[in-house]
């Protein structure tokens, strides 16, 4: 493509008085201009960045060892020594929440990663081969979509016994269907666009068209969907852990701290309030970031 492109003489091709910019450059500048204007999305991005750093640096940021218990410091209300109080065996809640952030982020990213891979592969295979294969795969997507997700999650975890890897896998493997449909639809519409037709006319191979022209463009909406998916996965993990079917204590997760909060609801409000607030802020931040990306990448 590049060789033939230079043959056209880049700058000499002037359409309606506009010099066509190289595609990538054009999209990046428009993207940044759009994205920068969206203050909510910027705020969301900043929060995501801060949270990711906090999760990465939990070891150094945490004022206490998250699993160090102290029977003399049980269920202390927030104070200067323990900013967010202590739990029922005297562990520091702030430290546990910082380590919990790791779990949330890890589950969010890994499970969405699984969903993106599975969804993209199934969606592009369906779109690429079409016909029987497409029909079969899309029926499978329908089937999975009609499986009530929470039922599927709980049943799988109940049968397999919860561990963090199982949770990531199960959340990922029950969350790829929307992505598959998205990728399929995107590819089907890209297939008919001028730049693909022209590449085909120039004699590019199917494989090259797929990997160089179609997939990179189809991945744009996938990125948006994945960002929103991280929020969903974090919510799902915290919900499972809250029920006691997710991350198992003593490993801290926001969900299982909330579960302990529920057990001590009459005496220790701080155990319930702060982890939930962390979930709310994180999910909100990812949602705002995702919406902002969507608006900036697809200024319709």
């Amino acid at each position: 493509m590049r060789a033939s492109g230079s043959g056209w003489g880049g700058g000499h091709l002037v359409v309606n008085g506009h010099v066509p910019l190289p595609r990538r450059h054009f999209r990046e500048t428009v993207f940044w201009r759009q994205f920068r204007r969206n203050q909510l999305a910027l705020a969301g991005g900043a929060v995501v960045l801060v949270l990711s750093l906090a999760a990465l640096l939990a070891q150094w940021l945490a004022p206490y060892d998250p699993s160090a218990y102290d029977v003399k410091q049980i269920l202390l209300a927030p104070s200067f020594a323990h900013w967010l109080g202590t739990d029922q065996i005297g562990r520091d809640v702030l430290s546990r929440m910082l380590y919990g952030a790791r779990i949330s982020m890890a589950v969010g990213f890994v499970s969405v990663g699984i969903a993106v891979v599975v969804g993209t592969v199934i969606g592009s295979v369906a779109a690429y081969y079409g016909g029987r294969v497409d029909e079969l795969l899309m029926r499978f997507v329908d089937l999975m979509l009609n499986f009530p997700r929470l039922f599927l999650l709980l049943t799988l975890i109940a049968l397999l016994r919860p561990s963090i890897w199982i949770i990531m896998a199960v959340i990922g493997l029950t969350g790829w269907m929307g992505l598959a449909r998205l990728v399929r639809g995107e590819i089907l519409s890209l297939k008919e666009r001028e730049f693909v037709l022209s590449a085909r006319a120039l004699g590019a191979l199917d494989r090259r068209i797929m990997f160089r022209h179609i997939l990179p463009n189809a991945l744009v909406p996938v990125l948006v969907s994945a960002t929103l998916g991280v929020a969903g996965a974090i919510l799902a993990e915290s919900g499972l852990s809250f029920l006691g079917l997710g991350v198992q204590p003593p490993t801290p997760s926001w969900g299982n701290i909330l579960n302990e909060g529920r057990a001590n609801i009459e005496i220790a409000w701080w155990l319930s309030v702060f982890p939930g607030m962390a979930i709310l802020v994180t999910v909100l931040a990812y949602n705002l970031l995702g919406e902002g990306l969507r608006d900036a990448l697809d200024p319709r």
Binding site: A231, L235, S238, G239, F242, L258, G261, R262, I265, E266, W269, S272, V273, P275, G276, I279, L280, V281, V283, L284, N287, L288
Partner: peptide, 22 residues
């Protein structure tokens, strides 16, 4: 936006603390 991001079990705990306990 806040509604989408609020885990319902957390909202439940908050309301329980406010109206039930406090």
């Amino acid at each position: 936006f806040v509604g989408f991001a609020t885990p319902d079990f957390w909202l439940a705990l908050l309301l329980m603390i406010l109206f039930g306990v406090q």
